[in-house]
Design a binder for these strands. Structure first.
Lengths: 347, 347
DNA sequence: TTGAAAGCGTTACCAC
DNA sequence: GTGGTAACGCTTTCAA
């Protein structure tokens, strides 16, 4: 392996200064055509591969990349349909701004921190649920623009969240209007401790994940205004995977046969619920009405199709990237949701 | 904004040399505990944020990231289920090796080239179908380890491809065994020109995408050995999206009502076909047998469930990443496929 | 337009 | 173990 050809070698061979050679590559308009051509010719002859990326970065201070962090879950980013839509949006904006997309990857918390510290990026996006987290601290320490998605991070440049409260309330109101009277809420993970299963009121008081807190509040407020006692609602904390959720719902149907309305905090969970209900020999929406949250494409093709609270995850990701990369005003945003009625709540 | 604190500032303030300060951060075991603590204390006091990532990169020559390029399609990577599985595998290996994952993003060919040139990475992975491509040239020019996925790139360090020929042949044999006699092949895009629709024999001769070429050959060889004339097979080039494919199949069923066996080069296309057949009032597998390719999760939940040729895309991605990052032997690999029989071919 | 020289902040090497 | 110092390869003043 021969030594790498450097810009200075090209400059010397072409009989120009290093500065001129640099301009020929980076700011061609500053160099006379004739000189430029000579430089390029010499460069080609010498086998110069163009400016060294890392050296340029050091000098300019720009990395040309946006870091994306999923601290809660490692393979989550490429498994959950909502996370994938988010990434699609981030990628779209990165492409628009000619910036690459650096996915921070790690097998554990400690490794994630060093992955954050080693990432050459101009800004960070972090998708997570709570902000008391060692990774968030590491991100703050980098002192780069930091945008939180689905969570409100203190000191972050901005955040992009959903109007989860209103969305949840719409879902609950819809189920009430469809005639449901006995409710179960299938919650996403409520805090760091992975403790899936029934959620007693003590655990409901210890919700650190913003999304869960808001949606729970929205469900409760609406159901209460509909005459339902919160203590009469069955709460289950579910893993956000259809299979797992399905198993949990199977047990739920045995333990609480009167349930006729299910509020799921994600479509993935709701799809698992549909499956369990079908296997239990009950009908949807006849015996039980089910409404999800997110509006993923798979929900259109279930049997029956899934009613849900639709959010625009692609736009959420795109907007977050725009805020992180942008110079402009960085107000945080709260995105709206809409009610999508399909067959799982109404015949 | 005050000036950034540098390692040399910390070293001076702590009364040690820059080298020792560097070691305290990068190779702690080389520095006495006592000295180390003093350095850290001073660093904290001065607000030193740790070694500058870009400077370290320039000095060490390591970027700590793997570049991933999807030249054919821009949002493709976050839309196609197979590409997502691939990314999951790549991410898994990156995490294992404590390397970040850089997705090269661009809106067009030209931008993609400069994105490749600006990426600070240690190796590249490229998923694509053919190798006569400006982006591939740009990748070669970077002179970094380059691994091709699903394609054989000249001069690449290695490549990871599927045994597409055998997989396709298995699919065709299965349909023959199920009693199909009149075949349609739903092909993936055959070359750079996006010209979806019927594929005449001239176009079948101009297939530059390796995957398509191999699968076509596999289908044809097996069908011919089953007594089917290649000219009697209907060929349609499909966009790899269920909706689009569905529309194309709807027309196919009108033009060729005798078709009773469909070979789709992807599950996504096959799912679109199932949909079109259902809407046309025909039954699967009674009237028409359908077999896909890939083995994506969605295929398990269609009605009827989709028979397919299963590949392990996650492992394909992981292996490619391992080859790109690894020091070890870099022989190219050909991964196997298996026949998965479900309801779309057999009652 | 072009040239000269000053950093960018670090790590690796070699001497002590 | 520790200290000095020379790269790493570039872009960007500033002066000509």
């Amino acid at each position: 392996m021969e030594k790498r050809v450097r810009l200075v070698d090209v400059a010397r061979a072409a009989g120009v200064s290093q500065g001129t050679a640099s301009n020929a590559f980076g700011k061609p308009h500053l160099v006379r055509q004739q000189v430029r051509d000579r430089i390029f010719a010499v460069a080609a002859e010498l086998g110069y591969r163009g400016p060294h990326v890392m050296a340029r970065m050091l000098r300019t201070g720009r990395a040309g990349a946006l870091g994306v962090v999923f601290p809660d879950n490692l393979e989550y980013a490429f498994t959950d349909p909502v996370a994938i839509e988010l990434l699609r949006g981030v990628g779209r904006e990165c492409a628009r701004q000619a910036v690459n997309m650096m996915i921070i990857s790690a097998e554990n918390q400690e490794q994630a921190i060093s992955a954050v510290n080693n990432a050459a990026v101009d800004a960070f996006l972090v998708h997570c649920y709570s902000d008391n987290n060692d990774i968030i601290s590491a991100l703050r320490r980098r002192n780069l623009p930091l945008v939180g998605i689905d969570t409100d991070i203190r000191d972050a440049v901005a955040s992009v969240v959903l109007d989860d409260y209103t969305g949840a309330a719409m879902a609950a109101r819809h189920l009430l209007e469809c005639g449901a009277g006995y409710f179960a809420i299938l919650s996403l993970q409520a805090n760091e401790a992975e403790r899936f299963g029934p959620m007693d009121d003590k655990r409901r008081g210890a919700v650190s994940h913003r999304v869960v807190r808001e949606r729970l509040a929205g469900y409760h407020a609406m159901l209460e205004s509909g005459g339902v006692e919160v203590d009469d609602i069955v709460h289950i904390e579910c893993d956000n995977l259809s299979e797992q959720a399905s198993a949990q719902v199977r047990q739920l149907l045995i333990d609480h046969p009167k349930i006729d309305g299910i509020l799921a905090m994600s479509d993935v969970i709701a799809i698992g619920a549909l499956d369990a209900i079908k296997k239990a020999g009950k009908s949807v929406p006849g015996d039980i009405r089910v409404i999800g949250f997110d509006g993923i494409a798979d929900g259109e093709r279930t049997d029956p199709p899934l009613s849900t609270i639709t959010q625009n995850s692609v736009e959420k990701g795109r907007l977050a990237a725009e805020l992180a990369l942008g110079e402009g005003d960085r107000r945080s945003r709260v995105l709206p949701t809409t009610l999508t009625v399909r067959g799982s709540t109404k015949a």
